[in-house]
Design a protein around this nucleic acid. Structure first.
Lengths: 224, 224
DNA sequence: CACACTTTGAGAACGCGTGCACAAGCTCGG
DNA sequence: CCGAGCTTGTGCACGCGTTCTCAAAGTGTG
C-alpha cells in the first residue's frame, strides 16, 4: 500500500498537511462527519483556496456542495504523511533540550516512538529518563540498526553536530531533525530539517525593532 | 548612521541574516579580517549569489575584489537584527520544554535575557529554576510590564495557547515565539513565529516514506 | 601606468507558491 | 424532474525569491 501521489506534492503543501491533520482530528472528536474547506481553513489558520488546492494534490477527496468527509480525509492525510505506521526515533544529545524532547508527549501521539537516548557524556550513560536509559554514543551504530531507526533527532552542542549527523547517516538514518545551532550537511538522499531557537528570536527581534523599540508604539509593518 | 534600511528587506533574507551573523562571529574569532561571499556562503550553508543579494539589501558594505570586512559587516547585521541591545524575554508554561528553554544558554549569548518564568500551576509557583523563580500567571500582566518585556515565549499545552497569547498581547508583548501545537492568532502589529516539533517530524516522515525506505529495508547509500 | 585578476552589485529570466474567479458537480426542496 | 443554492476543483495571473550572468570596481604586479 504505497502512497503514490497523483502529482508531485509541493513542499509548501506538505508543510501544511500536518495542520490539516490536527484540525481534522479535533473535528472528528466532535463527531462532525463533513467539513468545508472554509471551516478547515479557519481551524488550520490558512485560507480556503489554499486548503482546496492543497487537498487537490492528494486527489479529489471532496464532494462539491458538501465538503470533505472528515474520517476519510483524515485517513488519506495520515497515509500520505506516513502516520499509519510507527516511526522509531533516536535522540542524540541528552542535555536540557534532549531531555525535554525525551519527555515530550506530543511525539508518541503521532506514531513517533522515542526508542533510544544517546549521549557522549559517560557520566550520563545508564541514567534513566522516563522508560529509557541513556546509551553511549559508542553504541550509536548498533542501537540505530537494532531498532531500525530511520529518523534521528539531533540535540547536541553545535560543535558536535556535524560529526553526530555523519554517524547517524552512516548507521542508516535518512531523516534528521536538527536542533543544534550549526550548519550541518548531509548527503543526497537524506532529509534534514533545522530548528534553531536563537534564530527564531533574532527574526522576531528584527521585526520588533522596525515596529518601534519597546512594545508601546503602534505597528507599521506587516509580518507573516 | 543609516537607521532605516535602504529598501524593504525580504522576509527570506531576514531569516538568513542570523546565519550570516553566526558564521561571521566564528570567522571573527579566527582573526580573519575580510571574507568573500563565497566563503561566507559556505559557512552559512547557502550559495554565494544569495549571500551577495541578501547583503546588498542592507547596503553596499562589500569591497569589489576584496570581500566584506568581517567586523564591520558583523556590526551592521547585529544592528539590523536588533542584537546591539538586550531583549528581556518571558517564558510562559514551565513544563518539560519551558524548563529546557529556561536553562538554554543560547539565548543569552544573543542578548535575549530570560527575565520571567510564568506558569498556571500553583504547585510550581515559587519553584526556582536557575536564577529565576516561577511566578503565577495571575501576575503575568504585572511582571511583563515591570520588566518591559516585548518578546514572549509560549510553551504551554495547546489548549491554553490562545488565551495566554491574548494575555501576553494585552500586557504589551508584541512578539511571540509559539511552541504550543495549536493554531493561535494575534492582532495586527504583533509578530508570531511558530515552532511545532511534531509537525517537523511529520514532514520528515512524508519524505521518508517517498524514499521507499520502508521499515524493514536497510539504509540506502552511505556516502560520508 | 597598464594589465591581469578578483569579487561585488544588480539586471534579467525563471520557477514556485498564492489567491482570485468561475465552471463543474452535488444536494435538496418543491 | 427541475432549479436554487452550496462547495469543490482548477485555470490563470501575479508577486516573491532564487539563480545566472556580467559590467563595474577594486587590488596587485611589473
Amino acid at each position: 500500500m504505497t502512497a503514490s501521489p497523483r502529482r508531485r506534492i509541493p513542499e509548501a503543501t506538505v508543510a501544511r498537511l500536518p495542520l490539516y491533520y490536527r484540525a481534522l482530528l479535533e473535528t472528528g472528536e466532535r463527531q462532525v462527519a463533513t467539513i468545508s474547506s472554509e471551516r478547515l481553513a479557519e481551524l488550520a489558520g490558512v485560507n480556503a483556496a489554499k486548503v482546496r488546492k492543497d487537498l487537490s494534490y492528494l486527489g479529489s477527496y471532496g464532494t462539491r456542495g458538501v465538503g470533505y468527509d472528515v474520517e476519510y480525509l483524515l485517513h488519506e492525510i495520515s497515509r500520505e504523511l506516513g502516520l499509519t505506521r510507527d516511526w522509531p526515533v533516536a535522540i542524540v544529545g541528552i542535555g536540557n533540550l534532549g531531555r525535554a524532547l525525551a519527555n515530550y508527549r506530543g511525539f508518541g501521539a503521532r506514531g513517533f516512538r522515542v526508542e533510544a537516548l544517546i549521549d557522549a557524556d559517560h557520566a550520563l550513560v545508564g541514567h534513566q529518563i522516563g522508560e529509557l536509559a541513556v546509551v553511549s554514543i559508542d553504541d550509536l551504530d548498533r542501537v540505530v540498526r537494532e531498532h531500525n531507526i530511520a529518523i534521528g533527532i539531533l540535540a547536541t552542542p553545535a560543535a558536535a553536530a556535524q560529526e553526530v549527523a555523519d554517524r547517524l547517516v552512516a548507521a542508516g538514518v535518512t531523516s534528521i531533525l536538527n536542533f543544534a545551532p550549526a550548519v550541518c550537511s548531509v548527503p543526497e538522499g537524506v532529509s534534514m530539517r533545522k530548528v534553531d531557537l536563537a534564530i527564531e528570536l533574532q527574526i522576531l527581534s528584527f521585526y520588533q525593532l522596525r515596529r518601534g523599540a519597546s512594545g508601546a508604539t503602534p505597528p507599521r509593518e506587516r509580518t507573516a
